[in-house]
Simulated scan of single mutants.
Amino acid sequence: MEIHGTVYDILHNKGGEILTTGLDGSVYDAIRLMGERNIGALVAMDQNEVVGVLSERDYSRKVVLQGRTSRDTKVGEIISRPAITVRSKDGIEKCMQLMTGNRIRHLPVVDDGRLVGLISMGDLVSWVMQSQRHTIEQLQGYISGDYPG
């Protein structure tokens, strides 16, 4: 099945702000922000450049399991880098291939060197489910004769 739509479509439906973290901040502060906002990742920035992603997975594997403390560990020490990014005009299938191929769950969206959004695997799954639901409704309408076509 071909999946239609672009990253822009997801961002347009999703809305919301883009939360970021610097490299020199403590992991504790970043994880606290993620908890407060109920999100699974922050885009790690150096000046105005996207350099990586800090995810809950990074925290659990690179702080907790290594016996570090989140207050004494800097974000830049544990982020996943380099950042694997997409553009607004990229297709949904490309995003899914990048996520599954690189075993990641978040993709920063960068247009002309500027961070414009962040999409998650959950965003992609929701988009695909919505797309499939729409296709099924169209097919049911066509079969029943209710669909003008």
Rank of each mutant, 00 (worst) to 15 (best):
G5S: 13
N38C: 11
G40H: 05
D46W: 03
L42M: 08
M34E: 00
I18C: 06
G25A: 14
S55V: 03
V50S: 00
G5W: 08
V43N: 03
A44C: 10
G22T: 06
I18D: 08
H4E: 15
M45H: 03
G25P: 04
A44P: 04
I39S: 00
I39N: 00
H12V: 14
D58H: 12
V64P: 07
G40S: 02
V43R: 01
V27I: 11
L19S: 14
Y28I: 05
G22W: 03
G40Y: 05
A41D: 04
T20M: 02
R37S: 03
Y28V: 09
A41R: 02
H12G: 01
V51H: 01
G5C: 09
I18Q: 08
G52C: 07
L54R: 01
I39C: 03
R61E: 05
V63I: 04
S60Y: 14
R61W: 08
S55Q: 09
D9T: 12
L23S: 12
R32N: 10
D24M: 12
E56H: 11
R37F: 00
R61L: 06
L11I: 10
S55R: 05
V63G: 08
R32L: 09
R32F: 08
D46A: 11
K14A: 03
Y28C: 09
E36G: 06
G5I: 10
H4D: 15
R37Y: 00
A30F: 08
Q47E: 10
V7W: 06
M45S: 03
T21F: 15
V64C: 06
G25N: 14
A44G: 05
T20C: 01
G35C: 07
E17Y: 09
H4S: 15
I31F: 02
Y59C: 08
Y8V: 07
G35M: 07
I10C: 10
G35D: 04
N48A: 12
V27T: 08
Q47A: 11
M45I: 02
I10F: 09
Y8E: 14
T21W: 13
I31P: 02
T21E: 13
K14W: 01
L11H: 12
L19W: 11
G16H: 09
A41Y: 04
G52M: 04
D46T: 04
R32C: 04
Y28R: 15
E36C: 05
Y28Q: 11
R57E: 12
L11G: 07
D9Q: 15
L23Q: 13
R57H: 15
L23M: 14
G16I: 08
N38T: 13
L33E: 10
L23W: 05
R57K: 14
E36H: 12
I10R: 10
V43A: 07
Y8P: 04
L54P: 00
V27F: 03
G22F: 07
G40E: 00
E49D: 13
D9S: 15
M45E: 02
M45R: 02
E36D: 11
S26V: 01
Q47K: 11
I10W: 10
L42F: 05
S26G: 00
Y59M: 14
R61C: 00
I31S: 00
G52V: 00
L65C: 05
S26P: 01
V53N: 07
L42I: 02
D9P: 13
R61V: 00
R61S: 03
R57A: 13
